[in-house]
Design a protein around this nucleic acid. Sequence first.
DNA 1: TCCTTCTTTGTCCTTCCCTGACCTTTATGA
DNA 2: TCATAAAGGTCAGGGAAGGACAAAGAAGGA
Lengths: 155, 155
Amino acid sequence: MPNLADVIEAYLVELLQQAEQRSIVIQRSDLAALFACAPSQVSYVLQTRFIPQRGYLVETRRGGGGYIRITGLLPSVDELWRQALEISSFALTISDARHLIGLLYQAGLITAREARLLRVALERAVLRLEQPWHDEVRAELMRSMLATLMTSREE
Amino acid sequence: MPNLADVIEAYLVELLQQAEQRSIVIQRSDLAALFACAPSQVSYVLQTRFIPQRGYLVETRRGGGGYIRITGLLPSVDELWRQALEISSFALTISDARHLIGLLYQAGLITAREARLLRVALERAVLRLEQPWHDEVRAELMRSMLATLMTSREE
DNA sequence: TCCTTCTTTGTCCTTCCCTGACCTTTATGA
DNA sequence: TCATAAAGGTCAGGGAAGGACAAAGAAGGA
C-alpha cells in the first residue's frame, strides 16, 4: 500500500514523461481534489520529491489564476551534472564551489559567462548570513542553479 | 486559464509592438468594454505592469477627451544595462526582478539560460533571511550579477 | 516497547486579481 | 460664469490562488 505522496509523485512523473515540453503546469487545488487530499499534501510532495537535488525545478504563482509549473530533467543528463548535484548535496565551501564550477566549464557544460555568474552568486549570496550557515546555504543555491542549467538547453 | 489582467497586458503589449511609434493611446472605458470588465481593472493592469521598473511610461488625462498614453521605453544596449543597475540600486521585489530579467533577455543581452540562472538565484538566495531584508539583498545580488554579465560580453 | 522519520491534515498567512462606490479633473455650452 | 457631462483616479473589500507551519498519525527499526 503505497503512500499517497508516492502516488502523487508517480502521477506527476507520468505527466512529465508524456508532456511535449519538459514542464507541466498544474493547480494545487485541482490535484488535491483529484486525489481527495489536503492541498498542503501537494505542497509536501513538491517539497520532498521535486527538488533541485533530484533535478527538478518548481515555479509557482499565487493569487487568482495561480499555478504550479514543474520542470524536469532532460532525458539523458551527463553524469557530471549528477555528480555536481551530489557534491552540492549538503554543504559547499567557496573553494569547493569554485573548483566544481571550473570542472563544469572545462567539460563544456556551462559557458564562461555562466561560470562567472555562478561564482559571483555563490560568493555574494551568503554575505548577510552568519558564518555557520554559509556552506549550507551555498550548497542549496548551487543545487537550484545546477538544476536550472541542467534543465535548459542551449538558448 | 490566464488572468484577465494577463490578457489585457498581452493585448496592450501587442498593440505596442505593432504601433508605428513607441506609444499607443487608449481610453480606459473602451478597453474595459472590450474585455467586459470594470474600468478600474484597466487601471490595475497599468499600475502593476506598465510601470517604470518594467520600462514603461504611462501618461493620462482626465475629463472630456481624456486618454491614456502608454510608451514603451526602448533604451540602447548600454542604456539598458545602466537602467538595470539603476532599478536594482536599492531594493528589488521578486516580480520586478523577473520582469527586469525578461527585458534583458528580450533585448538579447543575456541568454535564456542566463535569464533562468538569474531568476532562480534571486528567488532562492534570500530564503534564509527575514522578510524585510529580502528586497535589499536581492538588489545587492542582482547588481553583482549584472556587473559580471556587463563585463563579459562574449562567451 | 520506544524512538525516529515520514506522511497527512488543518489553520492561518501572503499574494494577486477584480469590482464597485466614490472622488478629481477637464471640456463645453448655456 | 458655472453647471454638467465625460473622462480617469483612488481605495477598500471580497475572492481565489499558493505558502508556512504545527500537530497528529503511521511506519519501521533498535
